[in-house]
Design a protein around this nucleic acid. Structure first.
Lengths: 251, 251
DNA sequence: CGAGTTTTTGAGCAGATTCAAATCAAGTGG
DNA sequence: CCACTTGATTTGAATCTGCTCAAAAACTCG
């Protein structure tokens, strides 16, 4: 539509961000973009292990990673941590405080990452008179709710193998959405994180990966995972058990 | 603050609704309330089993039950239904379509119920120029996200008994929030619904109830449940197993 | 009251957890 | 460059929780 945006704003703003199509600015006009642009802060890179916010912090901003991934975790009274979600570049972080005004979870960087920070008050203010942004904000919130539901769907699956397949499948989808090759990836989260995300024991996750590899669906070496048979992964993810058919054993 | 509202608007509008404090209108002025009032529709009672919307329906409205309860379910490709949530009076229904513009779930009445319907476009329009409503809308959405997370927290608990205790505990809280006596209730959902909500087998739920009764925590008779020992229920819900200490068997 | 549904109870089995140990990957310092 | 440390991942064996199938008991409502 406006092919010269990149030339107009050379500085590394929203307009030049590769995530533009996914992120807040999607679907708003150039003039509106400028307004958003003015309230977005960019901070120095966050190191792995650093937190964007902690449980109980008052809601200040929402964040979007330009690169790098995060996990959000909920530490319960016993000190165990439950992993609520993983956040790839372009996926909003920090919406968890919307309800109470206080963060229910904390956001931890899994890798070094660059993030954009958007003070929520200002965002809401701009959104209230920029139609497109308001709608887009709703949409992004909705997507986040959608991911929550996907997560739940994972947890409700009885079989550990199903959950694991679903996890990998979902990750692949999301990687592809942000333009990464979804079939070869280096996981940024540990087996333990995955386990705590899926509600399984760490060892069960490990066994599940091994099983998938034995069945020829994926190839694993530590955190490097390659998806060899997407169709099969998809099937497994939806609860169709894998009987011998893949190991060429007739019965 | 404005003690005469009820007298001013005698008709059964938002102002006279007992749910006012929980519902959309919370925290907006009388004048603003009027604007909201104008777009709220009230329909004839919905019978048990009827649906407010189905999966795939375009997002039209959000709903709030004035009385009666609903469940939202997600029917997957295999025809199994997963229960996503239960909705008590005052709790918003229909937000699931925010992300895609299409309902991901369907909302089924568990009992006869009276609902208020609010066309979403109009709501958004009003919200965009009524500060208080905009904020309240965000808050309500946030609460809904919060409940989602609570649900997840339930599913991630390994022990069936924990999940069941957490379910009862949460229900009690919510009943009390809407001014019901939370300690004696008549469940509006079947054991099967609960099972599909908790990701357990129906029989496991039944056994769990029985177990809680044997331990003196609750009393169950079909769908009538009485909570006898809140503190203990609370403990159980948070993963503290109940060793013999309650059955007076010393060891 | 009786038919149908819902809930409870029982027995056996399969899958996931736990505990424990082995292996592997990556650094560190000599 | 190698021996050694540390942390992560995989593998093994035993146990136990929750599922399945099946049947009995209780509740609901014409």
């Amino acid at each position: 539509m406006t092919p010269t945006i990149d030339l107009i704003t050379l500085r590394k703003g929203c307009a030049s961000c590769s995530l533009q199509q996914l992120c807040l600015p999607a679907g708003i006009t150039l003039a509106e973009l400028q307004e958003l642009e003015d309230i977005v802060k960019r901070k120095r890179p966050v190191e792995a292990g650093e937190r964007l916010f902690r449980q109980g912090d008052p809601m200040g901003s929402v964040y979007v990673a330009r690169d790098g991934t995060f996990k959000t975790v909920l530490v319960n009274e016993d000190g165990e941590e439950q992993v609520i979600g993983f956040h790839l570049p372009g996926e909003l972080i920090g919406l968890d405080a919307l309800g109470t005004g206080t963060h229910r979870v904390e956001a931890v960087a899994l890798t070094r990452a660059n993030v954009c920070e958007v003070p929520f008050d200002e965002l809401a203010a701009v959104a209230s008179h920029v139609q497109g942004l308001q709608r887009q904000l709703m949409r992004v919130i909705g997507q986040s709710v959608g991911r929550d539901q996907d997560h739940r769907e994972m947890l409700v699956r009885r079989q550990a193998n199903e959950r694991i397949a679903l996890f990998l499948h979902g990750l692949r989808e999301r990687l592809r959405t942000i333009g990464e090759p979804g079939d070869q990836m280096r996981l940024s989260m540990s087996r333990e994180d995955i386990a705590r995300f899926l509600g399984l024991a760490l060892e069960t996750v490990s066994r599940g990966f091994t099983r998938l590899q034995d069945d020829g669906v994926i190839s694993v070496r530590g955190r490097k995972v390659e998806i060899l048979d997407v169709a099969e992964l998809d099937r497994l993810a939806h609860g169709h058990d894998a009987p011998g058919e893949r190991s060429r054993a007739r019965a």
